[in-house]
Design a protein around this nucleic acid. Structure first.
Length: 851
DNA sequence: CCCACATT
C-alpha cells in the first residue's frame, strides 16, 4: 500500500515544517467533540534537535493506532504549563513498504489468526503492495488457499482500517474540504456516506457550515426530486434559521417563513412547488418537535425551550426556601465600612444601597452605562461577601474546597478585566461550565455543576439565550446570582437579547446605576451618550466642545479628513495607542480595511527601502504597527480584542536568522508573544477597528466616521457603544444624516418572547403582556429610567412587587406550566390544539409571490 | 453586515 496520507487538515503555511516519526505510546487526552488529541510519541526519527526517546504531540488525529508508525509534520512549541510539545498540523501513516514491514504489519495484533508464516506467503505472492492489491480486489487472495475465516478477517480488517480514508474521499467527491469533511465524519463516523445517501439534507440540519443550498446540490447529484418531503422540510428549517436566528430573533411568523422557503426551494432548482405541500411539511416539522408554533409565532424548538428554561430556572432559584443568609442593615453597614477602609474608598449613598441590596438578593440585575461604577460595585460586593460570610479571599486556602465566589464573563477579555479588578480568578462562562464552544447542541452538552455561594457575571448583554439557559441550569439553589451589564450596548452575537429582556420583565430585583463617576464635570461626551440613548442628538451636536467636535464631510472625504485629524493629533503628542478610529464595517471607501491602510501610512510609514515589512492577506506588517489579536490565547494571557504593537520581525530568509519560519513578535500590555506565519491570521491592523471589537475597551481619543455607506449598520446602540469608548476626546465626522439615522433606528429591535415567559412563570397573576413588540418593550424600559441630563442622579434599587426578595412568596400560585403552550405531537394528534399554528384564515396561496 | 466560545 502506498503511504497513506489523510491530508484532512489544513496544510502548514510555514516554509519548512519539522517532522517527528514514531509510534504513539499513550494518549493523554482525546476530545469528545473533535479530533483534538494530546499524545505521547516514541520518536524513531525527527528533523529537530531532540535527544529524548519521547515527545508530546498535539493536534487533530482521527484513527490513531498504537502499533502503527506515523509521520507528524508541524512545529515545536513551548506550552507554558506542559513544556515542550510538537504541534502537528498534518500526519501520515508510515505504512510499511518493505517486505519485513508488511509481514510485521499483517502478522500484528490487527489481524488475529494470521501468523508470520501466512503473512510471508501473502507478501511473497502479492508483493510489498499486497495491502493495496487486496483492497482493490479481494479475489487476489483466492489462489493462496487461506482458510475462509482468516481471509474474511483480513479483508474486513483492512477495509475498516481504510474506511475513514474511503469516507474522506467520498466527502471530497461531494466537494467538502478538509475542515468540513472532518466535522461531517466526526458527526456520523462510519455511517457518513450512508447518511448522505439516505438524506443529504441531514447535513444541513446537523453540520454547522453546511447550508440548504449545499445539501441541495448533493441531493441533485443523487437524483433527489424537488418535491421530496425531506427537501421541503430542509428548506423550511433553513428559512426559519435565516429569518430568526440569523437576525438575532428567537422566532418568526408563518407568512414570511412559508413565502421565503417557497422561493428558496423553487429558485434553487428552478421549479414550481405546491405551497400546500410546504405547509404540510411545516406541520410535520412541528410533529417531529423541530419547530414549535405558539400563537402567530414559529420557533426553532431549541430557542423556544431556551426561553422557557431561562424563566423556569430563575423561578427555581427565586422560589427556593434556601434563601441567602439574612443580615440586618446595621451589620451590613458595619462590614461595609471596613471594606471601605481596606479599599481606601468611600461608597456614596446609592452605592451603599446597591451593595446592601445585592448582598441579600437571590438574583440581582445590575445595569449602568460606562463610568457608572459597575466595577466598583463588583469589587465591593466580593469584599463585602467575604466579610459577611467570614470566608477568605486567598485562593491558596482553597486547595481542597471550591472557591466560594465565581466570577465569569462571556468573553475572555471581559473575564481578564474582571480578574484584574477583583484580584480573584475569573474565566469565561464556557470555561466555568466546562464547554468547549463547539458543542452542536447545548442541550446535550454535559456541564459542570457549579459550586459556591455567589456567582457574578459581567458583560451580561453579550450572553445569548442558549448560553444563559445553560448557565442558569447549572446554578444550584442557594447560590446568589448577580448579572452585571450595560443594556444599551450591542446585543449578543447569538439569538436573543437576554439582559434587556430580564430587565424589561420587571420581575427581578435590579439596580440601575446612573451616576457618572469616571468623567469630570464639563464633559460633553457622557451627555451625548445619554442623548443618543434617549433617541435624539443634542442641539449642540455639530458645535465644537472642549472634548468633542464634529466635521461634516461625505463618504469619499472621510479618508482625507481622518488623515488631517490624525496628522494634527500625532503632532500634538497623541500616540497611536491613544488615537483609535472606529468604524462599523470593513468594506468600502470609508471601511475599516481602507482606513487602516491610510492610518498606517501616517502613523507608521515605510521609512526606507530597508524597512522590514511582511505581507499577509493584503495587509503589510511593520515594526511599530498597532495590531489587534482576534482569538483567545489564555496560555499567553492574550485575548480576543487585545491590542498590541509589533516589536520584532524575524525573517527566515535573513542571513543571520535563527528562525526556520517568518516570525512576528508583538508586545501586549503585560506580555510579549511570538507568532509564526501560521498564526498570523490571528492578527489584523488595529489603527481602525470595528465598533463591535471595541466593546469593552476605552481610548483617550476616539475618531468616529459615520456615513450613509454603512447603511444597515446605522443603529442606535452601535453609535452609543462607539461614543462611550472615548475617555477624553471624541471626534465625529461624516454625514449628519447618518448620525440621525443611527439614533432614530432602534438598536434593540430583536423579536423575542423571553420577557413574557418570565412574566408568565414568575407572575402568573399579572396582566399577561403581549410579547414583545420590540418598540414597546424598549420604550417601557426607557420610561422607567428617565434619561438623566448631565446632572448625576442616584442609583435606583428596585424590588419588584410580586417578587420573592424575602423568600416568602408561598402565596404565589403554581405557575402555568409552559407545556400548555407547546405544540406536542400528542396535542396535535388529540386535536386539542389547532395544528395550523397561527395560520388560521390564511390560505397558502397568500404566501405565493405574486407572479 | 457585525459578532463569542475551546481541549492535557
Amino acid at each position: 500500500m502506498a503511504t497513506e496520507s489523510l491530508d484532512l487538515f489544513e496544510e502548514s503555511g510555514a516554509p519548512q515544517a519539522d517532522y517527528v516519526v514514531g509510534t504513539v505510546s499513550a494518549v493523554f487526552f482525546a476530545s469528545n467533540d473533535s479530533f483534538y488529541k494530546v499524545m505521547l510519541v516514541k520518536v524513531s526519527e525527527t528533523s529537530m534537535d531532540w535527544h529524548e526517546d519521547e515527545i508530546v504531540v498535539t493536534g487533530n488525529f482521527a484513527d490513531i493506532k498504537d502499533d502503527v508508525t506515523y509521520r507528524f509534520t508541524g512545529k515545536r512549541v513551548e506550552h507554558p504549563k506542559y513544556g515542550v510539545q510538537f504541534q502537528a498540523d498534518n500526519y501520515q501513516n508510515e505504512t510499511p513498504t518493505t517486505r519485513n514491514g508488511v509481514v510485521g504489519y499483517l502478522s500484528g495484533d490487527d489481524f488475529p489468526g494470521l501468523g508470520k508464516k501466512t503473512a510471508e506467503k501473502i507478501v511473497d505472492a502479492l508483493g510489498t503492495n499486497a495491502i493495496e492489491e487486496i483492497l482493490n480486489d479481494p479475489a487476489v487472495l483466492q489462489p493462496l488457499g487461506l482458510s475462509p475465516k482468516v481471509s474474511a478477517t483480513l479483508i474486513s480488517q483492512l477495509q475498516t482500517n481504510n474506511g475513514m480514508e474511503q469516507i474522506i474521499i467520498g466527502l471530497n467527491g461531494y466537494g467538502f474540504g478538509s475542515t468540513l469533511a472532518a466535522a461531517i465524519y466526526n458527526r456520523y463516523q462510519e455511517k457518513t456516506l450512508d447518511v448522505i445517501h439516505e438524506n443529504p439534507y441531514q447535513l444541513a440540519e446537523d453540520i454547522n457550515g453546511v447550508s440548504f443550498r449545499r445539501a441541495d446540490q448533493i441531493a441533485t447529484q443523487l437524483g433527489y426530486e424537488a418535491d421530496k418531503p425531506e427537501r421541503l422540510r430542509a428548506g423550511l428549517l433553513q428559512t426559519l434559521n435565516d429569518l430568526s436566528v440569523a437576525n438575532g430573533d428567537t422566532y418568526t411568523t408563518a407568512k414570511p417563513l412559508l413565502a421565503n422557503a417557497l422561493s428558496l426551494l423553487e429558485n434553487s432548482r428552478n421549479v414550481r412547488l405546491d405551497p400546500a405541500k410546504l405547509a404540510d411539511e411545516l406541520l410535520e416539522l412541528a410533529k417531529e418537535q423541530k419547530v414549535v408554533g405558539d400563537d402567530q409565532r414559529i420557533y426553532l424548538k431549541t430557542l423556544y425551550d431556551a426561553e422557557w428554561q431561562i424563566a423556569e430556572n430563575l423561578q427555581r432559584l427565586l422560589k427556593a426556601d434556601d434563601s441567602p443568609a439574612k443580615f440586618n442593615d446595621d451589620a451590613i453597614r458595619k462590614q461595609l465600612r471596613i471594606v471601605e477602609k481596606q479599599g481606601d474608598i468611600v461608597y456614596d449613598e446609592s452605592q451603599t444601597a446597591a451593595l446592601t441590596a445585592a448582598i441579600q438578593a437571590k438574583v440581582m440585575l445590575l445595569t449602568g452605562g460606562p463610568g457608572t461604577g459597575k466595577t466598583t460595585i463588583i469589587r465591593g460586593l466580593v469584599n463585602l461577601y467575604a466579610r459577611m460570610h467570614e470566608v477568605s479571599l486567598d485562593i491558596n486556602e482553597y486547595k481542597e474546597k471550591p472557591f466560594p465566589i465565581l466570577l465569569a464573563a462571556p468573553t475572555g477579555r471581559a473575564a481578564k478585566r474582571m480578574s484584574e479588578s477583583t484580584g480573584l480568578p475569573a474565566g469565561t462562562i464556557h470555561r466555568l461550565l466546562g464547554l468547549t464552544g463547539r458543542e452542536d447542541n447545548l442541550d446535550e452538552a454535559a456541564t459542570n455543576d457549579l459550586e459556591g455561594g455567589l456567582l457574578i457575571i459581567d458583560e451580561t448583554s453579550m450572553v445569548d439565550v442558549y448560553l444563559m439557559k445553560t448557565l442558569l441550569r447549572a446554578v444550584p439553589v442557594g447560590m446568589q446570582v448577580v448579572l452585571v451589564g450595560d443594556k444599551d450596548q450591542l446585543p449578543s452575537v447569538g439569538p436573543g437579547q437576554v439582559f434587556h429582556d430580564l430587565l424589561a420583565s420587571d420581575q427581578l430585583q435590579k439596580i440601575q446605576l446612573d451616576t457618572i463617576y469616571r468623567q469630570e464635570d464639563g464633559s460633553s461626551i457622557i451627555p451625548l451618550a445619554h442623548a443618543i440613548k434617549s433617541g435624539k442628538l443634542p442641539a449642540d451636536f455639530t458645535k465644537n466642545q472642549k472634548d468633542r467636535s464634529f466635521i461634516a464631510c461625505h463618504a469619499n472625504q472621510v479618508e482625507s479628513v481622518i488623515d488631517q485629524i490624525v496628522q494634527k493629533a500625532h503632532a500634538k503628542g497623541f500616540s497611536a495607542s491613544d488615537i483609535q478610529v472606529l468604524a462599523p464595517m470593513y468594506r468600502g471607501s470609508a471601511g475599516i480595511d481602507r482606513l487602516n491602510v491610510v492610518l498606517q501610512d501616517i502613523l507608521n510609514p515605510k521609512k526606507s527601502e530597508r524597512t522590514k515589512e511582511v505581507e499577509f492577506r493584503n495587509q503589510k506588517f511593520r515594526i511599530g504597527d498597532k495590531v489587534l489579536h482576534l482569538v483567545n490565547s489564555p496560555e499567553n494571557n492574550v485575548f480576543n480584542g487585545d491590542i498590541g504593537v509589533i516589536t520584532g520581525i524575524d525573517l527566515a530568509s535573513d542571513k543571520h536568522s535563527e528562525v526556520k519560519s517568518d516570525q512576528l513578535t508583538i508586545a501586549f500590555e503585560q506580555t510579549e508573544v511570538t507568532y509564526a506565519r501560521n498564526d498570523w491570521n490571528r492578527l489584523t491592523l488595529a489603527y481602525c477597528m470595528s465598533i463591535h471589537k471595541s466593546q469593552g475597551s476605552e481610548f483617550k481619543m476616539v475618531i468616529l466616521p459615520m456615513v450613509g455607506q454603512y447603511n444597515r449598520m446605522l443603529q442606535r446602540n452601535l453609535l452609543y457603544t462607539a461614543v462611550t469608548r472615548a475617555a477624553d476626546m471624541l471626534i465625529l465626522l461624516g454625514e449628519p444624516r447618518a448620525f440621525e439615522a443611527c439614533v432614530t433606528s432602534l438598536g434593540v429591535n430583536r423579536n423575542t418572547t423571553l420577557t413574557t415567559r418570565i412574566q408568565t412563570v414568575l407572575d402568573p397573576d399579572g396582566t399577561p403582556a403581549e410579547p414583545d413588540e420590540p418598540v414597546e418593550t424598549t420604550s417601557t424600559v426607557e420610561t422607567e429610567t428617565p434619561a438623566p441630563a448631565a446632572a448625576p442622579t442616584t442609583a435606583a434599587v428596585e424590588t419588584p412587587e410580586p417578587a420573592t426578595a424575602d423568600g416568602t412568596s408561598t402565596d404565589t400560585p403554581e405557575p402555568t406550566t409552559p407545556t400548555d403552550y407547546r405544540l406536542t405531537p400528542e396535542l396535535v394528534l388529540s386535536r386539542k390544539i389547532d395544528p395550523m399554528i397561527g395560520m388560521q384564515g390564511v390560505s397558502p396561496k397568500q404566501f405565493m409571490p405574486s407572479v
